[in-house]
């Protein structure tokens, strides 16, 4: 129940199979959840909860992008259908990526904390902000100049 003493004596030597693995390892962890528990020591529960809140914040970001996709379609009815669908699909795709990446990053952070390694760095936030900026500029241009198209 307390979550801080279920790891037992296995701190994991270098020959432990769970230590090996390349870039595909994070993906495999998604579908073999018990393996996360096997590695390293259980971190302080507060760190796990902080990681969980970060995960939820990314899920909310994904939900906001999906909501933006709906909003483009519902609240800009005068745009040409192609433009509207394109913008909406771009936002929805960003939302999907964001949700998938949220799980991936959460798993990687959790694993790094168990092993006592540095937390993973990521360029996803930069890419996402650039994508959102591009969509925003496109939307401004479209709303200002493309209002006539039906």
């Amino acid at each position: 129940m307390s979550g801080t003493n279920d790891s037992g004596p296995c701190t994991g030597g270098p020959d432990e199979p769970a230590r090996r693995g390349g870039p595909g390892r994070g993906l495999r962890l998604w579908f073999a959840p018990q393996r996360v528990r096997e590695e390293g020591d259980t971190p302080d529960y507060r760190f796990s909860l902080a990681n969980e809140r970060t995960f939820l914040a990314w899920i909310r970001t994904a939900l906001a992008l999906i909501g933006g996709g709906f909003a483009v379609d519902q609240f800009l009815p005068h745009l040409a259908w192609g433009v509207r669908a394109g913008l909406a699909l771009a936002l929805l795709a960003a939302g999907v990526l964001c949700a998938l990446r949220a799980v991936n990053h959460w798993v990687r952070c959790e694993r790094a904390m168990r092993r006592g390694e540095d937390l993973p760095v990521s360029r996803f936030p930069v890419l996402l902000s650039l994508a959102v900026a591009v969509v925003a500029v496109a939307m401004v241009v479209v709303v200002l100049f493309g209002w006539e198209g039906r």
Binding site: T4, I59, V96, A99, V107
Partner: peptide, 23 residues
């Protein structure tokens, strides 16, 4: 609980999958 257990991977995965399904 005073010290909640960590989130389980399948629950995190389920939350993300629900989001993707909505999209």
């Amino acid at each position: 609980a005073a010290e909640p257990a960590p989130l389980m991977v399948r629950h995190a995965l389920a939350a993300a999958v629900c989001t993707v399904v909505l999209a």
